[in-house]
């Protein structure tokens, strides 16, 4: 998608919110569409498998700043796997969703991470690991710790949600939005520093690192 290229759209300068592209990835029926619908339309209903990819937009207001999320809700079914690269190209953030009651979906999420790593440079996308369906805690197969440990080992954000009970759903997207803005500001800072370096030619190396978080 030509216009979403990791960089904010020109509109940002005109006071319009920056646009970020977010993809929802994960195996079939883990609740990707439910998360998106709950977040965008505050609605939960049983839905049929997504065909290809569904597209939503939502403006996130983070107090001081706001940004627009373009949410690409991909189909989890295997038949669409081969076309999924179409959808995550140019993404700024990815939610790797799994179902806490299904171990296989957790493994699949790790597979998706590999796919993402092939497509993107490290740190290029904000990746959040999301364990959905916490309302079905009796059938849980993947513990919170397992999820967190994996996320930490790969440097991902991690959260557990329940799209059905609307638990932590908004928080996931807000966390992504905050992270995106932070990275944006950091990059902005780096860019200015870069300009400065060009001019002054003596900025100490490694400086930008301490600005991170």
């Amino acid at each position: 998608m030509a216009q979403v290229d990791g960089a904010p759209r020109p509109g940002a300068a005109l006071g319009q919110p920056c646009i970020f592209k977010l993809v929802l990835l994960g195996s079939g029926s883990v609740g990707k569409s439910s998360l998106a619908l709950q977040y965008v339309k505050n609605d939960f209903k049983s839905i049929l498998p997504t065909v290809g990819c569904a597209f939503f937009t939502k403006v996130v207001d983070l107090g001081a700043a706001s940004l627009k999320l373009e949410i690409w809700d991909t189909a989890g079914q295997e038949k669409y796997h081969s076309v999924c690269h179409l959808y995550f190209r140019g993404a700024n953030a990815a939610l790797l969703v799994y179902d806490v009651t299904r171990k296989d979906s957790f493994c699949k999420a790790q597979q998706w991470l590999k796919d993402l790593e092939e497509e993107f440079h490290p740190g290029e996308v904000v990746v959040v690991l999301v364990g959905n369906k916490t309302d079905l805690h009796q059938e849980r197969q993947v513990t919170f710790e397992e999820g967190r440990e994996f996320a930490e080992s790969k440097g991902l954000l991690f959260m557990e949600t329940s799209a059905k009970l609307n638990h932590q759903v908004t928080e996931v997207f807000s966390a992504v939005a905050r992270e995106l803005l932070q990275r944006e500001e950091k990059e902005e800072g780096q860019r200015q520093q870069g300009d400065a370096r060009l001019a002054l030619n003596e900025t100490p190396p490694g400086r930008s690192r301490c600005c991170a978080r």
Partner: peptide
Amino acid sequence: DWVGAPAFAAGEAWAP
């Protein structure tokens, strides 16, 4: 038949 499916109820879809 395809577009009449309930799966297309929400959002905009893009599919091969």
